[in-house]
Amino acid sequence: TETYTFDSEDQAEEFAQRAQKKGYTVEKRKENGKFKVRVE
C-alpha cells in the first residue's frame, strides 16, 4: 500500500484513474488542503 500526495485535485484524479486502469484499488481523500491517493 502506497499513499501519494498531490497539490491539485486534477493531478490526484488523473493518477487515480491510471492506477485503477492497472487494476489497483484506489482511495482518494482530501486532507489539509492536499489530495491524497492511497493505492493497493
Rank of each mutant, 00 (worst) to 15 (best):
R29M: 14
K34V: 11
G33N: 07
E13G: 04
R18L: 13
K28H: 08
E13C: 12
K22V: 07
F6E: 00
Q11P: 03
V26D: 02
T25P: 04
T3H: 06
K34R: 09
V37P: 00
R18W: 15
F35P: 00
V37I: 08
V39K: 01
D7Y: 06
F6H: 00
A12L: 02
D7L: 07
Y24F: 12
A19V: 10
E40V: 15
A12G: 02
Q17W: 09
D10S: 10
Y4F: 12
E13F: 06
T3A: 05
Q20N: 07
E14M: 09
A19W: 14
Y24I: 05
F6T: 00
T5A: 06
V39P: 01
K30N: 11
G23V: 01
Q20E: 11
E31K: 04
K34A: 07
E2S: 14
Y24A: 06
T3Y: 11
E27D: 09
T5G: 03
T1G: 14
G23H: 03
K22S: 11
E27Y: 13
D10M: 10
V37D: 00
T25I: 13
R38M: 13
E9A: 08
A16V: 08
A19H: 08
E2P: 07
K34P: 01
S8A: 07
R18G: 06
Q11V: 09
Y24M: 08
Q17D: 09
R29T: 14
A12I: 01
D10L: 09
E14A: 12
K21V: 07
E9R: 05
E13P: 00
K21E: 13
D10Y: 09
F15I: 01
K22T: 06
K22P: 04
A16C: 11
R38Q: 09
K28D: 01
K30V: 13
R38G: 03
E31P: 01
A19S: 05
K30T: 11
D10W: 12
Y24W: 09
V39Q: 02
K28M: 15
D10E: 14
Q11D: 13
E9S: 05
K34M: 10
S8K: 07
V26Q: 02
E9F: 08
K28P: 03
A12D: 00
S8E: 08
K28A: 07
A19L: 14
E9Y: 09
A12V: 02
A12C: 05
G33Y: 03
T5K: 03
E31I: 08
K36E: 10
Q11T: 07
A16P: 00
R29S: 14
A19D: 01
E2F: 15
R18Q: 12
E2D: 11
V37W: 01
R29H: 12
E31F: 06
V26C: 08
F6L: 01
E2V: 15
F15H: 02
Q11W: 05
